[in-house]
């Protein structure tokens, strides 16, 4: 017989009931869901994720997009790319979903206090990073400069457009945006995200950078940051993998020996630079 500590017979796979309070389309493909667990606040850290489920459809990992300060109600920004997310897009306020989590290490906010912060995000990467950006805005006095670089494919694909407009006017942070493909009415920058770096002043010894974006973006962004003299141990990133179970078991999210769902999704470049499947 197996000698173990008393075994918890509680299954890790049972979702908790949550209610959708509000649904707001952000773009043609992304919707923002305001969600509340029935029995407790979510209690997440920035850049953590939850497993969202709809009974009969399945589960999918979704980043929490709202500030950790208010997790009685939390935000999930969902693109309709998979089976679950397509089904989720058909849900309305009042509908219920299942939630497991939060999972993942989340962002080590205590390590960046007193620093200049440079956030680099592309596309859907703004969804997880928003939780950290909001945390920093709410605790503005704990940080020095706050710079957000955001690149989207097209202007119409920019997430949180109202919030971006507010941030653009907000003196607490410096938001710079670019798009790959301009559309009518777009007067801002055009070009890949790395083009934004050129105009940003960086104090290499005091800057912590955080990258979240599509897989192809990381290498280019790290290169730009290293060229600016930013230390490898101060370049953070949140990596996306197929986080099927969230429990460090199912194997789908493995990046060499690392279970991204447990040890990530937030990594420091100095820690993952030798992980061959990371970038």
């Amino acid at each position: 017989m197996l000698d173990t500590a008393p075994i918890s017979r509680k299954s890790l796979f049972v979702p908790e009931a949550a209610r959708i309070l509000d649904v707001e389309p952000l773009t043609a493909r992304e919707k923002l869901f305001r969600v509340s667990l029935n029995d407790r606040p979510l209690g997440h850290r920035p850049c953590q994720f939850v497993e969202v489920s709809i009974a009969g459809i399945g589960e999918a990992p979704i980043s929490v997009s709202s500030s950790p300060a208010s997790s009685e109600i939390f935000d999930l920004c969902v693109r309709d790319v998979g089976t679950l997310t397509q089904a989720m897009h058909r849900l309305e306020p009042g509908d219920r979903i299942g939630i497991r989590g939060p999972y993942g290490n989340g962002f080590p906010v205590e390590k960046i206090i007193g620093k200049d912060l440079l956030f680099v995000c592309g596309g859907l990467g703004l969804a997880p990073l928003r939780s950290l950006i909001l945390h920093c805005i709410e605790n503005r006095a704990s940080f020095r400069r706050l710079t957000v670089l955001y690149g989207a494919k097209r202007p119409s694909e920019r997430l949180y457009r109202e919030e971006l407009a507010a941030w653009a006017k907000d003196e607490r942070l410096d938001l710079r945006e670019t798009v790959d493909v301009p559309e009518e009415g777009w007067t801002g920058n055009v070009g890949v995200i790395t083009t934004l770096f050129r105009a940003v002043e960086v104090d290499p010894l005091e800057t912590v950078a955080v990258i979240v974006g599509p897989p192809v973006m990381y290498k280019f962004a790290v290169l730009e940051l290293l060229q600016r003299g930013i230390m490898e141990s101060r370049i953070y990133m949140s990596l996306e993998r197929r986080m099927r179970c969230g429990l460090g078991k199912c194997g789908h999210c493995q990046m060499n020996g690392i279970y991204v769902c447990q040890e990530g999704p937030v990594f420091c470049y100095s820690d993952v630079k030798k992980v061959k499947e990371a970038l």
Partner: peptide, 10 residues
């Protein structure tokens, strides 16, 4: 096995 919803296969 290592494909994410967006289609990227690691």
């Amino acid at each position: 096995f290592a494909e994410v919803a967006g289609g990227e296969n690691f």
